[in-house]
Every structure is written in structure tokens, then in C-alpha cells.
Design a protein around this nucleic acid. Structure first.
Lengths: 332, 332
DNA sequence: CTGAAAGCGCTTACAG
DNA sequence: CTGAAAGCGCTTACAG
């Protein structure tokens, strides 16, 4: 390359990197050689020697890239990264702590400049020795445990409280909680919000109305018949996650109860407005979460060394019909 | 590192790479030094010197990572890549040829081992000089133009023919075609399938029933009133893409026509079964497309040098109700 | 079984 | 304005 252009390697480097102070004639001959050889600078080599060691790539470890929440979050990260000329590695964790550790190692071995993590593990203390110093980590969706880092999370407690308060304000007093595995911090937070709302309105807490471990739509659907067959069945459901909401709605509609049992879901999902009744939800904003996380991350990469921050993105109640069904409409 | 372990750099390299023929005592001392220093081998450095130059990373350029089709495809790619201990870079093209070229360059500069491309450009001849020799490219969703490479696509012509034949078999003769921009090859193929089905059944082609350029759900929704106000309105709709299907359905439901105008969509979407009526679609299989593409790609990386192949993934008619509405139910 | 030397494609730190 | 030498963290190709 340098030989073809008739200049030194160093001059090639200067032209490629747009450094000033190269004779126009030499710039020209380098540019011509680039075209002639289809020359593409090797970024992995340049990052190796570069003082800051930056690779201009960051890694995102999310729950499941095929799930709309993760996919939208991923897309928001990509957009901000693109503005900074940075590329994105991505991986799905599927609630597996082993996979999390494996991917963290894979990404640090490739010297990603920073990590974005929606952790599957219950404790991230291992990051202390697993992540090289100077590599910022930003948590999304779930706050860190045993590790000090920036985080961007939805207001899980507040959102759940808002959902359940909405149902109470429509006259419900027997409200079921349908949740994911309680090991998941966001699932616990949403249960906490549910309980806070009950307490605040003097509605007794009935453990029979709490169903945990609904890891997917199928399990949520399967859990409903038992719940609705209780001696004193719920007149309303709070579904603490979007897959659960869909599974529960699927059962209600199959049993033709969708206009008789109220339901409010946590986390919005596509087409919720087209169902009949439309499904009332407390919407998270995955795009806002992703943008905020990426901005925090690039601030760190730019040298921001303030103490860790946790950004809480508010949720929003979206009223569509299913959450406004009165208890009198319930099955008897 | 080598100093701490009391061995040469080369022996460290052997232990890290699990090469045989190292004295057990030396293996031990290297392993201890690894722990002591939290040592992580630098994969970018090793790929630089390695003969094959492999980085164990491949790049996927898809339409829009937030769209369910791309997201599922992405996830399938990730799963196969994971089986090969390879990581995935990903980027969204948003139908922008410029973005495509930009990302191709970014990924080749980082020496991705292979590329997976759902092209936004109308001609990919530029890949000839843009992609280094020995870097396999596999096309997904859309076949290459002006470039020779493997491809995995859905059966767009056949699927569209199947959808429209289904409507004809239910008695429809005025069937509208709702399509994306005709510059998109899959959009053209689906129009072709539509026309083939009409011809095969002696149904006259009426250009008034063909609407192009519906780039998103909003435009599809907005296009319907005009179409339904024609002197001889369609009794059925073929929506040639999932966003278009959703937009069209949204209008039908708003106008309370969802039980009167038949609709079949190309490409399935979540919750299509929960709408009323359920939406009949010709389903693509993004997971199958992704898996097939990844397998083709890893075969190439393993040395397969057979001529380029194009794999066509069949579509599947999913009957749910909206496609079985008879023409007599139509608005008058 | 082990290691010293060279080199992957770049940038750094100089010297001129 | 330009380039020769050294070095980033590894692997290769040897030699012993």
C-alpha cells in the first residue's frame, strides 16, 4: 500500500485518519492507491496500537432479542451508537446466568469499549474482576446487585401501583397478581407495587390471588382456569409482564370472559389497541430506556467520572377498555 | 503475565489455547497467574497474527431490528452463531442504501468473518470490491442483484399466489393488492403472485385495485377509505406485508367492516390469532430463514466452495377467519 | 517439552 | 511536511 502510493506507512496513516499537514500531492497519491487496491484500514490492528485501545464497538446483553421489549431497546441503543460511529454487538441471555458470564467474557475478550447489561444473574459482583477497568457498564431494565454501575430502569413499583390503583378505582377488591419468577427483581418490584396499592386503599391482601412463576404466555394461559374457579374468584387481573398479559387475555377470550373480567397489563405490546376490548396497560418506554442508557454510556466513554447514577423512566397508563370493566360484569 | 507465571509468552499462548504438550506444572502456574491477574486474552490481537485472520464475529445487516420479522431472524442467526462460538454484530438499514454501504464498510473494517445481508440497495455489485475475498456473504429475505452469493428467501411469488387463490376460492373476484414500494423486490414478487392467481382463475386484473407505496401501517390505514369508496369496491384485500395488514385491519375495524371485507396478509404477526376475526395470513418463517442462512454461512466458513445456492423457504397459509369472509358479506 | 525471534497492520514518539 | 524505528498483544515458524 505505502509502496504503491510511493510514501511511507506513516503518511498513509495520516491520510486515512484525516490528519492535517500532508502535502496535497501525497494525499492524492494515497487516495488513488486506496481506490486501486480497494484498501480498507484494519480497525482491529489500529485499536491494538492506539493509546486508548478503543475498538468503537459496544456490546449489549439483553433478555431476548426476539422479544419486542428487547428488540426496541436494542434498536434505540443502535441509533445512539450510530450517532457516535460505534457498532453494536448483541446477545440474548434468556434468563441464564451462565450465558451472561459467557457473553461478558466473549465481549471483553474482543475488547468492547463498554457493556450494556440487562442481567439474568442475581448478583453481578463477578463483574469486578471480569470487566477491565475503564470499561463502563450500564445496566438496563434491572438494577445492579453487588456491583456499582449506572442503571436505567422503569418505575416498576410505581407502575404496578398505578395499574392496581386504576382497578381499585373502578370498584375492584379482588384483584389477582400474575407474575413471572419472583427471583427476577422487576417481578418482585411489581408485586411490591401491587401490595402498596392494596394497602393504600384498605383492600385485604389474599395470597390465593397471587400466582408466580408464569415464565411465558402459555403458562399464564394455563394458570387462569384454576384462579377463576376459586370460591371467591378475582374480578380483575393485574398481569405483571407483557407475555403474561397476552396469555391471560387468550384464556379470557377463549372462555368468552374478556368483557367480564378486567385486566391491566404491565408493559405495552403491539396490537393491544386492536383487541376487543382494547387492553389497558401500564406502558414502559423501551426506546427511552435504551436512549438514556446509551447516553449515559457515551458520557462515561467521554470521561464522565461522576458517581453512578440510576435513571428511573416513568411508566404511563394507557386506557383502552379492558381495565375499565366493572366488577359487576364478572362471572358468577 | 509470562513473567508472573515464570514461563515464556509462547507457553502462556499454548496453555490459553489448550494446546497439548505442556508440562503439567507449567500449566498450573499459568492458570494461577491468569487468576491472579484476571487475565483475558486479547482476541483482536490474536486474530491479527493468526493465519486465517478470523475474528469469530459475523455481521448481520437487517431491515429494522425492532420489527418482529428482523428481530426473529436476528435471534435465529444468534442461536446458530452461538453454537459455533461466534458473536454477532447487527445493524438496521431502514431501506437506506447509503446506510447499507456505510455498515458494510464498518463491518469489513472490523474484519467480520462473514456478512448476512437483507439488502436495501437495488444493486449490490459494489460488494465485489467492498468485501474482501474469502469473506462469505449470505443474502436473506431478498436475493442479490449484480453480485453472486448464497441467498435464503421466502417463496414470495408462491405465497402471494396462495393467498389470492384462497380468496378467489371463497368467491371473491374483486381483490385489492396493498403493497410496499415497488422498488422492493419482494413487493414486486408478491404483486407477480397476485397477478398469477388472478390469471389462473380468469379473474380480470383491475389496476384501480392495486395500491403501491404503503411503507408503514399508517399509510395503509389511510389508503383504505379511497379504495373502499370506488364505484365497484373490492370485497377482499391482499395485504402484501405485515405492517400493511395491521394498518388495513385497523381501518376495517374502525369502520366496523372487519366482518364484511375479507383480508389475507403476507407475513404473520404476533396476536393475529387474537383479533376478531382472527387474521388469515400466509406466514413466512423468519426463524427457518435465519437458521438456513447461518448454516449456509458456516458451511462457507468451513471451506465449502460449491457454486452459490438459493434456498427458498416455503410459506404456510394460516386460516383464522378474516380470509374466509364471503363476498356477499361486503358493504354495498 | 520449551522459548527466542520475527511479524500481523497499524500508531506512537521521535528526529529531521 | 515526512519517515524510520519501536511496539500494541498475540501467533508463527523455527531451533533446540
Amino acid at each position: 500500500m505505502a509502496a504503491i502510493a510511493g510514501v511511507s506507512m506513516k503518511t498513509v496513516s495520516r491520510v486515512i485518519n484525516g490528519e492535517p499537514g500532508v502535502a496535497p500531492a501525497k494525499v492524492k497519491s494515497v487516495e488513488q492507491a486506496v481506490r486501486q487496491l480497494d484498501y480498507r484500514p484494519n480497525l482491529t490492528a489500529s485499536s491494538l496500537r492506539r493509546l486508548d485501545g478503543r475498538t468503537a464497538a459496544v456490546a449489549a446483553l439483553l433478555e431476548d432479542l426476539a422479544n419486542p421489549f428487547s428488540a426496541e431497546l436494542h434498536r434505540a441503543l443502535e441509533d445512539v451508537a450510530h450517532d457516535h460511529d460505534v457498532l453494536l454487538f448483541a446477545g440474548s441471555l434468556d434468563e441464564s446466568p451462565e450465558r451472561e458470564k459467557q457473553l461478558i467474557r466473549a465481549f471483553t475478550s474482543r475488547r468492547a469499549d463498554a457493556l450494556i447489561l440487562a442481567p439474568a444473574s442475581s448478583d453481578q459482583g463477578y463483574l469486578t474482576y471480569e470487566v477491565p477497568e475503564g470499561t463502563p457498564v450500564v445496566f438496563v431494565d434491572r438494577a445492579p446487585v453487588g456491583y456499582e454501575a449506572d442503571a436505567v430502569v422503569a418505575d416498576n413499583v410505581g407502575g404496578a401501583r398505578q395499574a392496581v390503583t386504576h382497578l381499585i378505582s373502578h370498584g375492584h377488591r379482588r384483584i389477582a397478581f400474575l407474575g413471572d419468577r419472583p427471583a427476577i427483581p422487576t417481578a418482585r418490584d411489581r408485586l411490591e407495587g401491587y401490595q402498596q396499592a392494596l394497602r393504600a386503599h384498605g383492600v385485604p391482601f389474599d395470597p390465593d390471588l397471587v400466582v408466580h412463576g408464569l415464565e411465558d404466555a402459555g403458562r399464564a394461559e394455563a394458570a387462569l382456569p384454576g384462579l377463576l374457579a376459586l370460591p371467591a374468584p378475582p374480578t380483575a387481573l393485574f398481569a405483571a409482564q407483557n407475555e403474561i398479559t397476552v396469555g391471560a387475555f387468550r384464556h379470557l377470550q377463549a372462555a368468552d370472559l374478556q368483557h367480564h373480567v378486567a385486566i391491566v397489563g404491565f408493559d405495552d405490546f403491539p396490537l393491544a389497541d386492536l383487541l376487543r376490548p382494547g387492553v389497558t396497560v401500564v406502558a414502559q418506554d423501551p426506546t427511552a430506556i435504551g436512549r438514556a442508557a446509551a447516553e449515559l454510556l457515551f458520557a462515561r466513554l467521554a470521561g464522565d467520572s461522576a458517581p453512578s447514577r440510576t435513571v428511573v423512566i416513568p411508566t404511563r397508563l394507557v386506557v383502552r377498555g379492558s381495565g375499565e370493566i366493572p366488577p359487576s360484569a364478572g362471572p358468577r
